[in-house]
Simulated scan of single mutants.
Amino acid sequence: MGAVVRSAAKADFEAVRRIMNQVQELHVEWRPDIYRLNENFFTEEMFEELFEGGRFYVADMDGAVVGVLGIDYRHIETPANVTRDVVFIDSMAVDSEYRGKGIGHLFFDKVRELKRERNADGIELQVNARNRAAYEMYRSCGFTEKSINMELL
Rank of each mutant, 00 (worst) to 15 (best):
V65Q: 02
K115R: 14
G100A: 12
N40F: 08
D12P: 00
V86T: 03
G53Y: 10
L125M: 05
F88G: 01
R74W: 12
Y135M: 05
A133P: 13
E97M: 11
I148E: 06
A120S: 15
M61V: 10
E145V: 12
D90Q: 11
E117Q: 14
E97Q: 15
I76Y: 15
D109S: 07
M92G: 09
Q126D: 15
V127D: 10
G122I: 05
K10I: 01
A9M: 08
V82R: 12
V65A: 04
I89A: 02
L153P: 08
E113S: 06
L37M: 07
A64Y: 15
R31F: 06
E136W: 06
V94P: 09
F41S: 06
Q126T: 12
M1S: 14
N119E: 13
T144H: 06
H105T: 13
E151T: 06
Y73W: 11
K146W: 13
R116Q: 14
F88A: 02
L125D: 04
A64L: 09
L114V: 14
K115F: 02
M1L: 07
N149H: 11
R132I: 08
P79Y: 14
V16H: 09
N21C: 00
G70C: 04
G67A: 12
L50W: 01
L106N: 07
G70D: 10
N38Q: 08
F51S: 00
V68R: 13
S96W: 10
D72L: 06
F41C: 04
I34S: 05
L106M: 10
G67R: 12
S140P: 09
G2P: 10
